[in-house]
Simulated scan of single mutants.
Amino acid sequence: MSSKLWVPSYLPHWTTPERARARYALLRPGIELRIDADQRDWRPEDAPLRVSNLQTGVYSGPVGSAIGTHRHRADLEVRTETRQQLLFAPSRGRVDITLAASRGSNCMVAAWLIGTEHLSARDSGEICILEIDADAIGPATRVRSGIKAHHDPRMTTDMAEVIVPVDASQPHTWTAIWGHGETVIGCDGRLLRRIAQAPDYPLFLMIDLFEIGPRGGTYPKTATVHQVRGWQH
Rank of each mutant, 00 (worst) to 15 (best):
D167M: 04
R23N: 13
W178C: 08
A196F: 00
T218S: 14
D167I: 04
D188T: 01
R43V: 03
H72L: 02
P165Y: 05
R83P: 04
T224Y: 04
I195N: 00
R40W: 03
T141W: 06
R142A: 14
D46Y: 11
S52A: 10
E117S: 12
D135G: 06
T157Y: 01
T218M: 13
D152P: 12
H72M: 00
T141Y: 06
Y10T: 02
G213C: 12
A89D: 15
Y59T: 10
T82S: 11
Q39G: 07
D200N: 15
H13R: 02
S52P: 12
I127D: 02
H226Q: 11
R154M: 14
H226A: 12
D135R: 13
Q170H: 10
Y10F: 11
G61V: 08
P153Y: 07
V63M: 05
G68V: 06
C128M: 10
E45P: 02
D152G: 13
A111N: 04
K221A: 05
T173Y: 03
P199W: 05
G217H: 08
I114F: 03
I67L: 12
M159L: 15
K4P: 01
V51P: 00
Q84E: 14
I185Q: 01
S102N: 02
C107W: 00
L192T: 04
I67S: 03
T157M: 03
M155L: 15
V143W: 10
V109N: 14
T218D: 12
L99K: 03
H172A: 06
A47Y: 12
V225C: 05
V164P: 03
P153I: 06
D135Y: 10
S60E: 07
D188E: 10
V95M: 08
P17F: 08
H150P: 00
R229T: 15
A140F: 04
L26R: 15
L33E: 11
A74Y: 09
A168E: 02
R73H: 10
R94F: 01
I163D: 11
E182A: 07
I137G: 01
P139A: 10
L76C: 00
H151L: 15
R144A: 12
G61R: 09
S2I: 06
V143R: 09
F210V: 06
D158N: 04
V63N: 03
G125A: 14
T224D: 07
H180P: 01
L205I: 13
H72F: 10
D75H: 13
D96F: 02
L203R: 14
R142Q: 14
R193K: 07
I212T: 12
